[in-house]
Amino acid sequence: MCVRINGDNQPFASLTTVAALISLRKLRPETVVVEHNGVILARDKWTETAIKENDVLEILSFVGGG
């Protein structure tokens, strides 16, 4: 299936939840913020949030800025 992550369509053989995606990408959960189909997703909702075909995800983190 195909999921849009940070503006790029990315193919996945199988995906279950947001938590699984974060783990797959080797991201540290405490360092990222996830927006799922335009809704900010609290960290404790990641394991129960299923990812479906054509979902739009934004994965963001804080960086230096003025």
């Binding site: 992550i5 940070n6 540290r28 360092t31 913020v33 963001l60 804080f62 230096g64 800025g65």
Partner: peptide, 19 residues
């Protein structure tokens, strides 16, 4: 102090958390 929010680069590692 100010910080910014950006899309992560999913291809690189993200061990360094500015916060």
């Amino acid at each position: 102090v100010t910080v910014a929010l950006r899309r992560i680069d999913t291809q690189s590692s993200h061990d360094d958390n500015i916060l």
